[in-house]
């Protein structure tokens, strides 16, 4: 876990400010940005995976049962998955978080 920026002293930084924890941005939860939430009607879903393919945030994740579901930590609610679903299986609904 990286600590918050304001806690860093100059000694805590790597030489040249190199970041050696690949993918550490996972700590930053962009789910907060979301107003709309994708909700899948699994009776319509064919598990085609287009929602996963087109998600700019890699927030539509494959699940064990073969379906895909949003990762609420990162889904920004852009609505691409709902728009691109060929089977109209995904609806964007107001996110009452």
């Amino acid at each position: 876990m990286a600590k918050p920026m304001e806690k860093y002293t100059w000694r805590d930084l790597n030489v040249g400010c190199v970041i050696d924890e690949p993918g550490s941005s996972l700590e930053y939860k962009t789910g907060d940005w979301r107003n709309l939430l994708p909700v899948t009607d699994y009776s319509k879903c064919t598990k085609c995976g287009l929602c996963w393919l087109f998600c700019p945030d890699n927030a539509m994740k494959p699940k064990d049962d073969g379906f895909f579901g949003p990762d609420l930590d990162y889904c920004k609610g852009c609505g691409i998955c709902a728009q691109e679903c060929k089977f109209a299986a995904i609806q964007m609904v107001e996110d009452k978080k």
Binding site: E6, Y8, V18, I19
Partner: peptide, 17 residues
Amino acid sequence: RPVTMGAYGMPEIYTEA
């Protein structure tokens, strides 16, 4: 061993850098 070089510094960290 992938590293990120040339990241940007917000006001909270630029001075320390």
